[in-house]
Each structure stands twice: as structure tokens, then as C-alpha cells.
């Protein structure tokens, strides 16, 4: 039995006084794509932030192991360098930081961590352009400051490009489809699918089933009241689309 890529056991986490994640369990093996679906406000985004180490969330009990190592004790950047990547729901704008410089720093930080030689500017730009071309993403966006003035669709394209360039072992998509038109959605899904190689894993967090038409999950979990209340295959997503989440919320209430 190989070590699972991600193993979350009895996780409890809170933001301030509010307990958001309660007794959460999930195991993701290499190459698997898991979807977590749930009603708004259930704490889906909190789960993604807790996994990436965002400040402001306190883990009160439980454990998270990534590649068999304790994830909770790692810094934000260590998690990223170890191969965790989050496509954010609302990527922040960073005026004054050119995207090219930012992404080059990121690429080289991760390469250094993996004992690979750092890329010079020429090699980096060539690599990014090629990656962008394969995904149908215009690298012109790189000339602008990070996310500044980008439309919702452009921001998600940029997130996808970053993911493809940084080649994580596990990508978390936090509501990657929110505010996207169908074209942008296809680009994002295309980017994710191009990274599916039987080894990389994905955790797709979404409210709607729509995204899962493009990124076909191996497993679907229903997240409510702080933990997974039901698991199944891709058909569970269709069922949820039809019946809604009321059943799960009512059950608990």
C-alpha cells in the first residue's frame, strides 16, 4: 500500500470563535480527482485555506499529512514548494509587482527546493509562453502587475497558467468556476485536465455541478456542517444538482 498523497484525519478548525471544520476526514491517493460539493457557507473555502496554511485559522485537533509528512507544521511557502497549489476563488491584486517577476520567483523557489537549477529570464519566459500556448492562454497578461485590472475570467486563466507552470502534485480548486463564462471555464478545466497524468491529484471544491462536466471526478463528497456527510462517484454530483443540498442540511438540523 503506497502512502496517500493527502490524508486528513479528524480535523477540527476554527476562524476566531467559530468552529467551521468538525471531525473532517478525507484521503486522496495519487492520481485521484476528488470533488467536494456543499451549500454556500458550509466552510468549503476554509478547508482550502487550512490546507494551504492561510493565517487566521486555528486547527484545534486532528492531523493533515501530505506525502506522509505533517502538513500543519509547514509554512505556507513550504507547502507550495512540496507541491500543493490553490487556485483561489478571488485572486488578490498586487499593484507594483510585475507578473513575470513574481512567477519567475515562484518557479525558481520551487526548483531550488527540488534541487533543480534556477531558470534565467530567457528560459523562464520561453517555458511560460509554451505552457500558455498549449492551454490557449495569452502570455501578454504576464506584462501587467499581478492580477491588477484583470477580469474574473482573466484572473482564473492566470491561476491556471500558474498551476501549469508550477506543476504541483496536488491542486486545490476553490470555486474555480465562480463568475466564469463558458469559454473561461473550458480553459480552466482544460488546464486542470492537461495536468491529470495518473500521478497528480486534484481537489475540486464547487457549489455547482457544472464544472464537473469538464473535470470528471473519481469521487464526489458532500460537505455540510463541517465535514463530509456523503461520498459517492460522479453520479452523486448529478443527484445533488437535481435535489439540492436541503436533505443534508435538514438531516443535521
Amino acid at each position: 500500500m503506497t502512502t496517500p498523497l493527502l490524508e486528513i484525519e479528524d480535523l477540527c478548525a476554527r476562524a476566531g470563535d467559530k468552529e467551521i471544520i468538525k471531525d473532517f476526514n478525507l484521503t486522496i491517493n495519487e492520481g485521484e480527482v476528488h470533488a467536494i460539493m456543499g451549500p454556500n457557507g458550509a466552510g468549503k473555502s476554509t478547508l482550502s485555506y487550512v490546507l494551504c496554511g492561510k493565517p487566521g485559522y486555528e486547527i484545534t485537533s486532528g492531523s493533515i499529512k501530505f506525502k506522509g509528512r505533517d502538513l500543519i507544521s509547514m509554512s505556507i511557502e513550504e507547502r507550495a514548494r512540496e507541491g500543493l497549489f490553490l487556485i483561489m476563488q478571488y485572486p488578490v491584486e498586487i499593484p507594483g509587482v510585475p507578473t513575470t517577476a513574481f512567477l519567475k520567483h515562484a518557479v525558481n523557489a520551487i526548483r531550488k527546493h527540488n534541487h533543480e537549477s534556477e531558470l534565467d529570464t530567457m528560459a523562464f519566459i520561453k517555458m511560460v509562453r509554451e505552457t500558455g500556448k498549449n492551454l490557449g492562454i495569452d502570455a501578454e497578461m504576464l506584462k501587467r502587475p499581478v492580477n491588477v485590472g484583470f477580469s474574473g475570467g482573466e484572473k482564473k486563466r492566470m491561476e491556471t497558467l500558474q498551476m501549469a507552470v508550477l506543476k504541483p502534485d496536488m491542486a486545490i480548486l476553490d470555486e474555480a468556476d465562480s463568475g466564469l463564462d463558458i469559454d473561461a471555464l473550458k480553459v480552466v478545466a482544460g488546464g486542470v485536465n492537461s495536468l491529470r497524468d495518473g500521478k497528480r491529484s486534484m481537489l475540486v471544491i464547487t457549489h455547482y455541478q457544472r464544472l464537473l462536466n469538464y473535470i470528471i471526478p473519481d469521487f464526489v463528497h458532500v460537505f455540510a456542517n463541517g465535514h463530509i456527510v456523503k461520498s459517492g462517484d460522479k453520479n452523486l454530483a448529478l443527484e445533488l444538482e437535481e435535489k439540492g443540498y436541503a436533505e443534508f442540511i435538514r438531516d443535521k438540523a
Partner: peptide, 22 residues
């Protein structure tokens, strides 16, 4: 902004420097 930069693998100190320079 700091979280965003770090979540891409950029070290905390380097991320701070980038934001200060910006």
C-alpha cells in the same frame, strides 16, 4: 497579498520585500 505570494512558494521574507518594493 503576502499569503498569495507565499502560496506560490515565495519565501515570507522575499514576499515582504517584493511588496515593500512595489
Amino acid at each position: 497579498q503576502l499569503f498569495y505570494l507565499q502560496s506560490r512558494g515565495i519565501g515570507a521574507e522575499e514576499a515582504r520585500q517584493m511588496l515593500i518594493e512595489a
